[in-house]
C-alpha cells in the first residue's frame, strides 16, 4: 500500500513539475512575443539567425526531402502494385510531401541543427555571465537574444519547407520516371491535378509554427541552463528532444485543424 502511494506521489510530483515547466515556457514565449511589438529591435541579430536557419540549413533539408521523396515513391509503388493502384503514386507523393513530410522532416532537421545551436550558444552565455553582462550594458537579454531568434525561426522555416516540398516531389518524380516507368508528362499532370493551394499553405503554416517552437525551446533551454559545461550539454539535449516532441504533437493538432472532416 505504501509503495503504491509512493508511486502515486512520484507520478503526481512529475505531473506538477511538467505543468509548472509548461507554464514557465508559455510565459517566456508571451514575454518574447510582447517584445516583438515594441522597439528597440535588433535587426542585425535577426538577419544573422535568419541566414543561419534559412540558408545554412538548406543542404541538409534539401537532401532529406530529395531522398524522402525517392524512398516514398519506391515504397509506395511496391505497395500499390499489389492492388493495381500504381496510378495513385503521384498523388500520394505530392500530398504526403506538402502536407506532412516536408514540414515535419524539415522541422526535425532544423531542430537538430538550430535548436541545439541556440541552446548551446545561449546556455554558454548564461554560464559565462554574458547574459548578466548584457543587462549591465543596458540591453534587455530577452530583446537581444530571444526575440530575433523567435522571429527568425518563424519566418525562415516556411521558405525552407517550400524548397523541401519542391525537392521531395522532384525525388518522387525522378524515381517514378527513371525507374518505375511513369511517363514524365503524365506524372506531372497527375501531380498538378491533385494538388490544391491549401495543401501547400497548410504545410507552410505548420513550418512557421515549427520554426517558432524550435527557436522557443532552444532559447528557453539555453536561458535556463545552469552548472557549466554539463549544464549546457543537458540544455542542448533538452532543446532538441522537446522541440522534436512538440513538432510531432503540434503536427497532429494542426493537421486536425486544417483537414477536419
Amino acid at each position: 500500500m505504501t509503495r503504491a502511494l509512493d508511486l502515486l506521489a512520484l507520478i503526481g510530483r512529475g505531473a506538477f513539475a511538467t505543468l509548472a515547466t509548461a507554464g514557465q515556457v508559455a510565459i517566456f514565449a508571451l514575454v518574447g512575443l510582447s517584445h516583438l511589438l515594441r522597439p528597440p529591435f535588433h535587426a542585425r541579430q535577426f538577419w544573422r539567425h535568419f541566414a543561419e536557419i534559412a540558408y545554412f540549413s538548406l543542404p541538409v533539408v534539401a537532401l532529406t526531402a530529395l531522398f524522402t521523396g525517392m524512398v516514398l515513391a519506391l515504397q509506395s509503388h511496391t505497395g500499390f502494385s499489389r492492388f493495381g493502384a500504381e496510378t495513385a503514386l503521384p498523388s500520394l507523393v505530392v500530398l504526403s510531401i506538402t502536407r506532412e513530410l516536408g514540414p515535419v522532416l524539415a522541422g526535425l532537421m532544423v531542430a537538430g541543427r538550430i535548436g541545439a545551436a541556440m541552446a548551446a550558444e545561449i546556455g554558454t552565455m548564461r554560464v559565462t555571465d554574458q547574459i548578466d553582462a548584457l543587462t549591465t550594458l543596458s540591453t534587455d537579454p530577452m530583446r537581444y537574444l530571444v526575440v530575433p531568434r523567435l522571429l527568425a525561426g518563424t519566418l525562415a522555416l516556411p521558405p525552407l519547407v517550400l524548397v523541401a516540398d519542391i525537392l521531395g516531389v522532384l525525388g518522387g518524380f525522378l524515381i517514378a520516371t527513371l525507374q518505375l516507368g511513369f511517363v514524365p508528362q503524365g506524372y506531372l499532370d497527375a501531380t498538378w491535378d491533385v494538388l490544391e493551394t491549401m495543401d501547400v499553405v497548410s504545410g507552410l503554416v505548420k513550418a512557421a509554427v515549427f520554426g517558432f517552437l524550435i527557436a522557443l525551446m532552444g532559447c528557453w533551454c539555453g536561458y535556463t541552463s545552469r552548472g557549466g559545461a554539463q549544464g549546457v550539454g543537458q540544455a542542448t539535449t533538452r532543446a532538441v528532444v522537446a522541440a522534436s516532441i512538440l513538432i510531432l504533437a503540434f503536427d497532429y493538432v494542426l493537421t486536425a485543424a486544417f483537414f477536419k472532416q
Binding site: E121, T124, D129, Q130, A133, T136
Partner: peptide
C-alpha cells in the same frame, strides 16, 4: 561592470 571572466560576447 568588469566581470570576473571578462564575459565578452564571443559572437
Amino acid at each position: 561592470m568588469l566581470f570576473q571572466n571578462g564575459a565578452l560576447f564571443d559572437s
